[in-house]
Design a binder for these strands. Structure first.
Length: 466
DNA sequence: AATGCCGGGGG
DNA sequence: CCCCCGGCATT
């Protein structure tokens, strides 16, 4: 043995890792790429959040635990549009890497006068730039010159935000349906930075008004409660009726005098666009939910488990477990499905050391319920000294494991399985030794190098958890 | 005796 | 943290 070790070790690492952990996930994606992808998705694709989440979750999870994947993209996205404005205030058009800038330049008027005014304007109104720009372009009547000029200037800054989140969509879709979500998200996250500044606030308001379009706008002027559906109209209203001549000065003035009454994501009227609903829920809720709900949900509620009957629906047990637990939490449904799955997988990797099966009860949901439901309990007796948790976790029946193993790619399947039922992830109930297939049995002592590390260390088998 | 793995120890 | 191994329970 001893002599062999060194050699074996080297060899072992390869095979071992492959089956247990790396098998599929070995390929990891680069963070950068992913981020970009996400960005793209955000822009172009409207919803799909569920899918996205799921996918990211799966892959990422393998490498890193957490739902990180999901968050990351979003966070990034948010940042993208958040940051730009800030930096721009100081510097003008640096940030924008946006390709879009080019197009804008075309429509900018060449008037020199404007430039001067604009220069001043820009500094002050930079914060608003994205907002202002978007609207004006469409048709700001009152001050065409400035607006256009401002637009031009701002393009640098605004572009990012536009391209990133609202801008593109607003134009294309007519409704900013998608925009709202990002904007909201932005609102939440960004505040830290610019809370102090009035400008910031304005920006927010403005952004909202533009971005979260479907809302209505109410005039805040003392005795005027006028409600309009478009921010633009509202601005105009304020300017004309309340501000009067001053209007020309600063477009954003109007922002102070009206507020947006938005019906954001939840209510989402269908007509506007299919997209809207997705983004909202996705951005804010799903992340937290996923993290919290998925694991705890299934575990604790164990009692619910799915009746054995479900077998027909899908061959693998995996699917079932997911669905079962999900049902319990009302809200989580969509999320839960995606999130949980990812979760399981995470756990798998660490079966050996890290995993602490959270719950005992889980057992109920195992795909092949018939045999093992009872067994776990009985089995538990075997170990006198085990830790409670461990014992409970272990409850899993050998039969299940075997079946899977037999079927085929043991490693992957197993992993998934174990992961699938978080609760029992790897329980310690050893079924009959006879039935249990462990590395030693499978590979034999001679091929110890092929054992999973746990087995080599005389620990609970990682590769073939009961 | 073979196996599976906990608990503990060394580097 | 990685790696071993003594020792116990089980088969």
């Amino acid at each position: 043995m001893a002599a062999m070790k060194p050699g074996e070790r080297t060899l072992s690492s390869g095979p071992q890792s492959c089956p247990s952990t790396a098998a599929d996930p070995t390929e990891t994606r680069q963070p950068g790429a992913e981020m970009q992808e996400t960005l793209v998705d955000m822009q172009c694709c409207e919803q799909e959040d569920p899918n996205l989440t799921e996918r990211n979750g799966h892959r990422k999870i393998m490498d890193r635990n957490h739902q990180g994947p999901v968050f990351v993209p979003q966070g990034l996205t948010e940042r993208v549009w958040n940051h730009p404005p800030a930096p721009q205030q100081t510097t003008t058009p640096t940030m924008p890497s946006c390709p879009v800038s080019a197009p804008y330049s075309f429509w900018s008027p060449g008037s020199v006068e404007m430039d001067e005014i604009m220069a001043a304007m820009v500094l002050t109104s930079l914060s608003c730039s994205p907002v202002v720009q978007s609207i004006p372009q469409s048709q700001n009547d009152p001050v065409p010159g400035p607006s256009s000029g401002g637009g031009d200037m701002e393009c640098g800054g605004g572009e990012l935000s536009d391209s990133g989140s609202s801008g593109c969509w607003s134009w294309d879709h007519g409704n900013l349906s998608p925009a709202p979500s990002p904007s909201n998200a932005e609102m939440d996250s960004s505040p830290d930075e610019g809370l102090h500044m009035e400008l910031e606030d304005e920006l927010h308001t403005a952004t909202r008004s533009k971005s979260s379009f479907r809302g209505t706008y109410r005039c805040l002027w003392p005795s005027c409660g006028k409600v309009l559906t478009s921010s633009f109209g509202m601005k105009r209203h304020v300017r004309v009726l309340h501000l009067g001549s001053e209007s020309e000065q600063s477009p954003r003035e109007e922002d102070f005098y009206y507020t947006k009454i938005s019906c954001v994501a939840p209510a989402d009227p269908s007509p506007i666009s299919p997209l809207p609903p997705a983004p909202v829920p996705a951005s804010s809720p799903h992340v937290p939910w996923a993290s919290c709900d998925s694991p705890p949900g299934p575990g604790p509620d164990s009692g619910l488990q799915i009746p054995s009957s479900s077998s027909s629906s899908s061959g693998s047990g995996i699917s079932r477990p997911i669905s079962g637990p999900e049902s319990a939490p009302g809200q989580a449904r969509p999320l839960s499905q995606s999130a949980p799955s990812s979760f399981w997988q995470i756990q798998t990797d660490h079966l050996y050391q890290a995993c602490t099966p959270q719950r005992v009860t889980v057992s109920s949901r195992s795909p092949t319920p018939c045999c093992w439901t009872p067994p776990p309990l009985t089995v538990s007796n075997q170990h006198s000294h085990h830790n409670t948790q461990v014992v409970t976790g272990r409850c899993r029946s050998v039969s299940v494991g075997e079946q899977w193993l037999q079927q085929n790619s043991a490693t992957n399947r197993l992993i998934t399985m174990s992961a699938a039922s978080p609760s029992r992830s790897h329980c310690s109930f050893r079924k009959g030794r006879a039935e249990a297939k462990k590395c030693r049995k499978v590979y034999g002592v001679e091929r110890k190098d092929q054992w999973c590390t746990a087995c080599r260390w005389k620990k609970a088998c990682q590769r073939f958890p009961d």
